[in-house]
Simulated assay, not measured.
Amino acid sequence: MNRYYIYLVLLNMLVNVIIFVPKILIQYRYEGAVMGVLIAIPIGVALNYLYSKAINKFPEQGLPEILAHSKHRWLKMLHFGSSQLIWFSAGLITLVGFIDILARFVNPEMPKLVFLVIYLAALFLIIQFPTERVMYFLEIVLFLNTPLIGFIIFKAFTNEYLIWDSILEVSTYIFVKPSLKSIAAATYCFAGYANLIIFNRVIKGKLKIWNFIAIFILGTFNLFTTFFIPIGFHGSDGAQEYLYPWISTADSLRMVYSPIERVIFLFLMFYMSISLMSVAVHWHVAYELIKGSFRGKISKKKNWMILSSFTCCSFIAVIYFNTVLLTKITVYWMIFRLGIEMIVVAIFFIWARRRTA
């Protein structure tokens, strides 16, 4: 089993627990979200399988290396440009969302722009590292945080205040026709595989079937945990009232004999590094794709222009996007992403088979 591949998908699953996916799924809990989750699982695993198998035909190469000798330069630039925009926006959505969480739950008196400056300083340091070193950072963060997050989830499942009747009530809507919004939100939990567009550089050997079985198990558990645990704590109607259902759920947990009794503080502390690495991975991919658009090594001037554009977009988003607006934009962004993702995976899979035939 290739642990680097698992890391990329697991990171995307973990970060989506806290920000937008649970809110969207809970919003459509009576309107087909349960069926949407069930449909999203095979779609997510299939996209993982097709894309991973295709890009594995180009061992230890990212997209810039794969398309380096392409004769269709306009097609190459179109692919690079659209990919850069998608990956940058994915990181930006996570960044703006988590800064809003920090401003609400950690220090409401500190301006959001101060949080943004701190995050950007760390992000710009990480995204300029070689891809292998970024993966090492990700491995350390997951190694330190995943067991503790797993323990919090265990505490949630075994809590005496978890109302299983509310979970069963929502489960009875399993045969309601799902909305595209719930399917798009649920499939996003599996979308970490797309980072192979650059991180294939550090993948050694072929991906075995066990990798995809692991993704199926982790994804199924992640989606049902993300969706049902807040409903179990706050009720089938009450869960809808929270902007961030999982943070409110964490605040409902207590560890009586722990030095820190309120789980919400531990939960947010763990997710600070998880969200940082999620944005760093997305922006590293965008940064490498932008570098791949130029011939040869980019100059310091161009590098500063790239980082400056990242900074300007981040400041504009934090200033003008409130929580409600960001959620609405994210819903439609996820639908757009799912459509583009399915088209790109299908085309790349066919192209890779012909290229290596």
Rank of each mutant, 00 (worst) to 15 (best):
M1I: 10
M1D: 01
N12A: 08
M13T: 10
P22C: 08
P22A: 05
Y28C: 03
P42Q: 03
A46F: 14
Q61I: 02
G62H: 01
G62P: 00
P64Y: 07
S70E: 14
H72G: 01
W74R: 13
M77R: 15
A90H: 01
A103Y: 02
F105V: 03
P108V: 04
P108I: 04
M110H: 03
P111D: 02
A121W: 06
A121M: 14
A122M: 13
F124T: 07
I127M: 05
F129I: 02
P130G: 01
V141Y: 06
G150S: 11
F151N: 10
I152K: 05
K155M: 14
A156V: 12
E169K: 09
I174D: 12
K177H: 03
I183Y: 07
N195E: 00
I215A: 02
F221K: 08
F224P: 04
F233C: 09
G235E: 11
S236V: 12
D237S: 14
P245E: 07
S248M: 11
S252Y: 12
V256Y: 14
P259C: 02
M269L: 14
F270S: 11
S273E: 05
L276S: 11
L276H: 14
Y287C: 00
K291A: 01
G296C: 13
N303R: 13
S309L: 15
C313Q: 05
A317M: 09
K328M: 05
K328N: 12
T330A: 15
Y332W: 12
R337V: 02
R337W: 05
I347W: 13
W351C: 06
R353L: 15
R353S: 10
R355F: 13
